[in-house]
Protein backbone atom coordinates (compact mmCIF):
# COMPACT_ATOMS: atom_id res chain seq x y z
CA UNK A 1 0.00 0.00 0.00
CA UNK A 2 2.90 2.34 0.83
CA UNK A 3 4.32 1.60 -2.58
CA UNK A 4 1.02 2.52 -4.21
CA UNK A 5 0.87 5.83 -2.32
CA UNK A 6 4.46 6.63 -3.23
CA UNK A 7 3.80 5.95 -6.90
CA UNK A 8 0.59 7.95 -6.70
CA UNK A 9 2.39 10.96 -5.24
CA UNK A 10 5.21 10.59 -7.75
CA UNK A 11 2.65 10.58 -10.53
CA UNK A 12 0.94 13.59 -9.00
CA UNK A 13 4.23 15.50 -9.05
CA UNK A 14 4.92 14.54 -12.63
CA UNK A 15 1.37 15.43 -13.62
CA UNK A 16 1.51 18.81 -11.86
CA UNK A 17 4.80 19.59 -13.62
CA UNK A 18 3.20 18.81 -16.99
CA UNK A 19 0.11 20.79 -16.00
CA UNK A 20 2.01 24.00 -15.25
CA UNK A 21 3.34 23.92 -18.81
CA UNK A 22 0.21 22.51 -20.45
CA UNK A 23 -1.96 25.36 -19.13
CA UNK A 24 -0.13 27.89 -21.30
CA UNK A 25 -0.23 25.58 -24.31
CA UNK A 26 -3.93 25.03 -24.08
CA UNK A 27 -4.71 28.69 -23.42
CA UNK A 28 -2.89 29.91 -26.53
CA UNK A 29 -4.44 27.14 -28.60
CA UNK A 30 -7.89 27.99 -27.30
CA UNK A 31 -7.60 31.61 -28.40
CA UNK A 32 -5.76 31.51 -31.73
CA UNK A 33 -5.63 27.76 -32.61
CA UNK A 34 -1.84 27.87 -32.68
CA UNK A 35 0.33 25.13 -31.22
CA UNK A 36 3.01 27.32 -29.70
CA UNK A 37 6.06 25.07 -29.89
CA UNK A 38 8.19 27.82 -28.34
CA UNK A 39 6.22 27.42 -25.11
CA UNK A 40 8.63 24.82 -23.73
CA UNK A 41 11.48 27.21 -24.40
CA UNK A 42 9.75 29.94 -22.39
CA UNK A 43 9.68 27.49 -19.51
CA UNK A 44 13.41 26.89 -19.95
CA UNK A 45 14.11 30.65 -20.13
CA UNK A 46 12.19 31.11 -16.88
CA UNK A 47 14.39 28.53 -15.18
CA UNK A 48 17.60 30.14 -16.48
CA UNK A 49 16.49 33.63 -15.43
CA UNK A 50 15.69 32.38 -11.94
CA UNK A 51 19.08 30.63 -11.77
CA UNK A 52 20.92 33.86 -12.59
CA UNK A 53 18.84 36.00 -10.22
CA UNK A 54 19.13 33.43 -7.43
CA UNK A 55 22.89 33.28 -7.96
CA UNK A 56 23.24 37.04 -7.56
CA UNK A 57 20.94 37.23 -4.54
CA UNK A 58 22.69 34.32 -2.83
CA UNK A 59 25.98 36.16 -3.22
CA UNK A 60 24.36 39.19 -1.60
CA UNK A 61 23.32 36.97 1.28
CA UNK A 62 19.52 37.18 1.07
CA UNK A 63 17.39 34.57 2.81
CA UNK A 64 15.89 31.60 0.99
CA UNK A 65 12.24 32.69 0.89
CA UNK A 66 13.11 36.17 -0.36
CA UNK A 67 15.29 34.66 -3.08
CA UNK A 68 12.49 32.31 -4.13
CA UNK A 69 9.96 35.15 -4.36
CA UNK A 70 12.23 37.66 -6.14
CA UNK A 71 13.67 35.06 -8.53
CA UNK A 72 10.18 33.85 -9.42
CA UNK A 73 8.90 37.38 -10.02
CA UNK A 74 11.86 38.33 -12.21
CA UNK A 75 11.57 35.05 -14.15
CA UNK A 76 7.83 35.55 -14.65
CA UNK A 77 8.19 39.15 -15.84
CA UNK A 78 11.15 38.37 -18.09
CA UNK A 79 9.49 35.33 -19.66
CA UNK A 80 6.21 37.18 -20.12
CA UNK A 81 8.16 39.84 -22.02
CA UNK A 82 9.63 37.08 -24.18
CA UNK A 83 6.17 35.61 -24.81
CA UNK A 84 4.83 39.04 -25.78
CA UNK A 85 7.77 39.71 -28.13
CA UNK A 86 7.67 36.27 -29.74
CA UNK A 87 4.02 36.74 -30.60
CA UNK A 88 4.71 40.15 -32.13
CA UNK A 89 7.71 38.95 -34.16
CA UNK A 90 6.88 35.40 -35.14
CA UNK A 91 3.08 34.97 -35.08
CA UNK A 92 1.36 38.32 -35.63
CA UNK A 93 2.69 38.85 -39.18
CA UNK A 94 1.38 35.37 -40.04
CA UNK A 95 -2.06 35.75 -38.56
CA UNK A 96 -3.79 35.78 -41.95
CA UNK A 97 -1.47 33.12 -43.40
CA UNK A 98 -2.40 29.43 -43.46
CA UNK A 99 -2.16 27.81 -40.02
CA UNK A 100 0.74 25.66 -41.13
CA UNK A 101 2.94 28.72 -41.68
CA UNK A 102 2.44 29.89 -38.11
CA UNK A 103 3.21 26.37 -36.88
CA UNK A 104 6.50 26.31 -38.77
CA UNK A 105 7.29 29.77 -37.45
CA UNK A 106 6.69 28.39 -33.94
CA UNK A 107 9.09 25.49 -34.50
CA UNK A 108 11.68 27.95 -35.81
CA UNK A 109 11.22 30.15 -32.76
CA UNK A 110 11.65 27.16 -30.48
CA UNK A 111 14.97 26.22 -32.12
CA UNK A 112 16.11 29.83 -32.11
CA UNK A 113 15.56 30.15 -28.37
CA UNK A 114 17.22 26.80 -27.63
CA UNK A 115 20.38 27.63 -29.52
CA UNK A 116 20.39 31.19 -28.27
CA UNK A 117 20.57 29.91 -24.70
CA UNK A 118 23.09 27.24 -25.76
CA UNK A 119 25.40 29.92 -27.16
CA UNK A 120 24.76 32.60 -24.55
CA UNK A 121 25.03 30.21 -21.58
CA UNK A 122 26.41 26.69 -21.95
CA UNK A 123 25.53 23.26 -23.28
CA UNK A 124 26.41 21.66 -19.94
CA UNK A 125 23.98 20.82 -17.20
CA UNK A 126 23.98 23.46 -14.46
CA UNK A 127 23.11 22.82 -10.84
CA UNK A 128 19.95 24.65 -9.75
CA UNK A 129 19.80 25.63 -6.09
CA UNK A 130 17.02 24.28 -3.91
CA UNK A 131 14.96 27.46 -3.54
CA UNK A 132 12.03 25.87 -1.76
CA UNK A 133 12.65 25.66 2.00
CA UNK A 134 12.19 22.30 3.74
CA UNK A 135 9.06 22.45 5.84
CA UNK A 136 9.50 21.31 9.42
CA UNK A 137 6.13 19.59 9.65
CA UNK A 138 7.00 17.36 6.68
CA UNK A 139 10.07 15.78 8.27
CA UNK A 140 8.39 12.52 9.39
CA UNK A 141 7.07 11.78 5.90
CA UNK A 142 9.92 13.33 3.93
CA UNK A 143 10.84 9.98 2.39
CA UNK A 144 7.39 9.90 0.77
CA UNK A 145 6.75 13.49 -0.22
CA UNK A 146 9.12 16.47 -0.25
CA UNK A 147 8.20 20.09 0.42
CA UNK A 148 9.02 21.07 -3.16
CA UNK A 149 6.36 18.60 -4.30
CA UNK A 150 3.75 20.10 -1.97
CA UNK A 151 4.58 23.56 -3.38
CA UNK A 152 4.22 22.25 -6.93
CA UNK A 153 0.81 20.68 -6.20
CA UNK A 154 -0.43 23.87 -4.55
CA UNK A 155 0.87 26.17 -7.26
CA UNK A 156 -0.71 24.08 -10.01
CA UNK A 157 -4.07 24.13 -8.25
CA UNK A 158 -3.93 27.87 -7.59
CA UNK A 159 -2.82 28.70 -11.13
CA UNK A 160 -5.61 26.57 -12.57
CA UNK A 161 -8.27 28.23 -10.39
CA UNK A 162 -6.95 31.73 -11.14
CA UNK A 163 -6.81 31.14 -14.88
CA UNK A 164 -10.29 29.65 -14.95
CA UNK A 165 -11.51 32.64 -12.94
CA UNK A 166 -9.74 35.04 -15.28
CA UNK A 167 -11.45 33.53 -18.29
CA UNK A 168 -14.88 33.07 -16.75
CA UNK A 169 -15.37 36.22 -14.68
CA UNK A 170 -13.23 39.11 -15.93
CA UNK A 171 -13.69 41.49 -18.82
CA UNK A 172 -10.50 40.44 -20.54
CA UNK A 173 -11.61 36.83 -20.04
CA UNK A 174 -14.85 37.55 -21.79
CA UNK A 175 -12.91 39.18 -24.62
CA UNK A 176 -10.69 36.08 -24.80
CA UNK A 177 -13.68 33.80 -25.08
CA UNK A 178 -15.16 36.04 -27.76
CA UNK A 179 -11.89 36.00 -29.71
CA UNK A 180 -11.74 32.24 -29.40
CA UNK A 181 -15.23 31.80 -30.77
CA UNK A 182 -14.97 34.13 -33.75
CA UNK A 183 -12.13 36.56 -34.18
CA UNK A 184 -13.71 38.65 -36.94
CA UNK A 185 -16.99 38.99 -35.11
CA UNK A 186 -15.17 39.98 -31.92
CA UNK A 187 -13.36 42.69 -33.84
CA UNK A 188 -16.65 43.94 -35.26
CA UNK A 189 -18.17 44.39 -31.80
CA UNK A 190 -15.17 46.37 -30.66
CA UNK A 191 -12.88 43.83 -28.96
CA UNK A 192 -9.22 44.78 -29.34
CA UNK A 193 -8.14 41.40 -30.65
CA UNK A 194 -4.43 42.28 -30.76
CA UNK A 195 -4.50 43.21 -27.12
CA UNK A 196 -6.37 40.04 -26.20
CA UNK A 197 -3.86 37.84 -28.02
CA UNK A 198 -0.90 39.66 -26.46
CA UNK A 199 -2.49 39.22 -23.06
CA UNK A 200 -2.94 35.50 -23.71
CA UNK A 201 0.75 35.10 -24.51
CA UNK A 202 1.78 37.12 -21.46
CA UNK A 203 -0.36 35.03 -19.10
CA UNK A 204 0.63 31.75 -20.73
CA UNK A 205 4.33 32.59 -20.61
CA UNK A 206 4.07 33.70 -16.99
CA UNK A 207 2.65 30.31 -15.91
CA UNK A 208 5.35 28.49 -17.89
CA UNK A 209 8.07 30.55 -16.19
CA UNK A 210 6.60 29.82 -12.79
CA UNK A 211 6.64 26.15 -13.70
CA UNK A 212 10.27 26.47 -14.81
CA UNK A 213 11.38 27.91 -11.48
CA UNK A 214 9.53 25.32 -9.36
CA UNK A 215 10.47 22.31 -11.46
CA UNK A 216 14.13 23.26 -11.77
CA UNK A 217 14.23 23.76 -8.03
CA UNK A 218 12.67 20.31 -7.58
CA UNK A 219 14.95 18.40 -10.00
CA UNK A 220 18.05 20.43 -9.15
CA UNK A 221 19.52 20.76 -12.65
CA UNK A 222 18.84 22.56 -15.92
CA UNK A 223 20.29 22.86 -19.39
CA UNK A 224 19.16 24.50 -22.63
CA UNK A 225 17.27 21.40 -23.77
CA UNK A 226 14.89 20.84 -20.83
CA UNK A 227 12.09 22.80 -22.52
CA UNK A 228 11.86 20.46 -25.46
CA UNK A 229 11.01 17.18 -23.74
CA UNK A 230 8.85 18.81 -21.06
CA UNK A 231 7.10 20.81 -23.79
CA UNK A 232 6.31 17.73 -25.87
CA UNK A 233 4.93 15.87 -22.85
CA UNK A 234 2.85 18.89 -21.81
CA UNK A 235 1.52 19.17 -25.34
CA UNK A 236 0.49 15.52 -25.27
CA UNK A 237 -1.18 16.13 -21.92
CA UNK A 238 -3.06 19.14 -23.30
CA UNK A 239 -4.30 17.13 -26.27
CA UNK A 240 -5.25 14.22 -24.00
CA UNK A 241 -7.31 16.49 -21.78
CA UNK A 242 -8.89 18.32 -24.68
CA UNK A 243 -6.84 21.16 -26.10
CA UNK A 244 -8.32 24.57 -25.39
CA UNK A 245 -9.80 23.54 -22.05
CA UNK A 246 -8.13 24.60 -18.77
CA UNK A 247 -9.43 21.84 -16.49
CA UNK A 248 -8.82 19.48 -19.41
CA UNK A 249 -5.12 20.41 -19.49
CA UNK A 250 -4.76 19.72 -15.78
CA UNK A 251 -6.73 16.50 -15.93
CA UNK A 252 -4.82 15.32 -19.00
CA UNK A 253 -1.51 16.11 -17.30
CA UNK A 254 -2.47 14.22 -14.15
CA UNK A 255 -3.67 11.22 -16.14
CA UNK A 256 -0.44 11.19 -18.14
CA UNK A 257 1.78 11.63 -15.08
CA UNK A 258 -0.06 8.95 -13.11
CA UNK A 259 -0.09 6.45 -15.95
CA UNK A 260 3.66 6.90 -16.47
CA UNK A 261 4.35 6.53 -12.78
CA UNK A 262 2.21 3.42 -12.32
CA UNK A 263 3.41 1.85 -15.54
CA UNK A 264 7.01 2.33 -14.42
CA UNK A 265 6.25 1.12 -10.91
CA UNK A 266 4.28 -2.00 -11.73
CA UNK A 267 5.49 -2.97 -15.20
CA UNK A 268 8.64 -1.40 -16.64
CA UNK A 269 10.11 2.01 -17.30
CA UNK A 270 11.65 0.75 -20.55
CA UNK A 271 8.37 1.32 -22.30
CA UNK A 272 6.90 4.19 -20.28
CA UNK A 273 6.77 6.53 -23.30
CA UNK A 274 5.32 3.83 -25.51
CA UNK A 275 2.60 3.30 -22.96
CA UNK A 276 1.92 7.04 -22.55
CA UNK A 277 1.44 7.49 -26.27
CA UNK A 278 -0.61 4.31 -26.68
CA UNK A 279 -2.89 5.70 -24.01
CA UNK A 280 -3.17 8.93 -25.99
CA UNK A 281 -4.01 7.05 -29.18
CA UNK A 282 -6.76 5.03 -27.50
CA UNK A 283 -8.24 8.08 -25.82
CA UNK A 284 -8.34 9.95 -29.10
CA UNK A 285 -9.95 7.01 -30.90
CA UNK A 286 -12.87 7.05 -28.47
CA UNK A 287 -12.91 10.76 -27.66
CA UNK A 288 -11.36 12.55 -30.63
CA UNK A 289 -11.33 15.95 -28.90
CA UNK A 290 -9.79 14.70 -25.66
CA UNK A 291 -11.22 13.85 -22.25
CA UNK A 292 -12.83 17.23 -21.56
CA UNK A 293 -12.67 18.69 -25.06
CA UNK A 294 -15.79 20.23 -26.57
CA UNK A 295 -17.08 18.15 -29.42
CA UNK A 296 -18.37 21.06 -31.49
CA UNK A 297 -17.85 20.81 -35.21
CA UNK A 298 -15.06 22.81 -36.74
CA UNK A 299 -15.92 26.33 -37.74
CA UNK A 300 -16.39 26.65 -41.48
Amino acid sequence: MDYFIELFLGGLTRGSIYALIALGYTMVYGIIQLINFAHGEIYMLGAFTALIVAGILTMLGWNQVAILVIASIVAVVYSAAYGFTIEKIAYKPLRQAPRLSALISAIGMSMFLQYYVLLAQTSNFLPFPNLIPDFKFLEPIEHIVRSSEIVIYATTAIVMVLLTGLIKFTKIGKAMRATAQDRDMAMLVGVDVNKVISMTFIVGSATAALGGVLIASHTGQINYYIGFIAGIKAFVAAVLGGIGSMPGAVLGSLVLGMSESFFTGYISSDYEDVFAFLFLVFTLIFRPSGILGRTDTDKV
Binding site: Y3, E6, L7, G10, G11, T13, R14, I17, Y18, I215, H218, T219, Y225, I226, I229, A230, K233, E260, S261, F262, T264, G265, S268, S269, D270, E272, D273
Partner: peptide
Protein backbone atom coordinates in the same frame (compact mmCIF):
# COMPACT_ATOMS: atom_id res chain seq x y z
CA UNK B 1 16.90 -4.52 -14.49
CA UNK B 2 15.41 -1.42 -16.11
CA UNK B 3 15.98 1.30 -18.67
CA UNK B 4 15.15 4.89 -17.83
CA UNK B 5 14.12 7.52 -20.35
CA UNK B 6 16.84 10.16 -20.76
CA UNK B 7 15.58 13.70 -20.12
CA UNK B 8 12.39 12.68 -18.28
CA UNK B 9 11.21 15.29 -15.78
CA UNK B 10 11.42 12.94 -12.82
CA UNK B 11 12.78 9.51 -11.93
CA UNK B 12 10.71 9.25 -8.76
CA UNK B 13 8.91 6.09 -9.88
CA UNK B 14 12.11 4.26 -10.81
CA UNK B 15 13.68 5.29 -7.54
CA UNK B 16 10.68 3.94 -5.63
CA UNK B 17 11.10 0.74 -7.55
CA UNK B 18 14.76 0.49 -6.54
CA UNK B 19 13.70 1.03 -2.93
CA UNK B 20 11.05 -1.67 -3.10
Amino acid sequence: YEGVTPGAVSYAAVVQKIKR
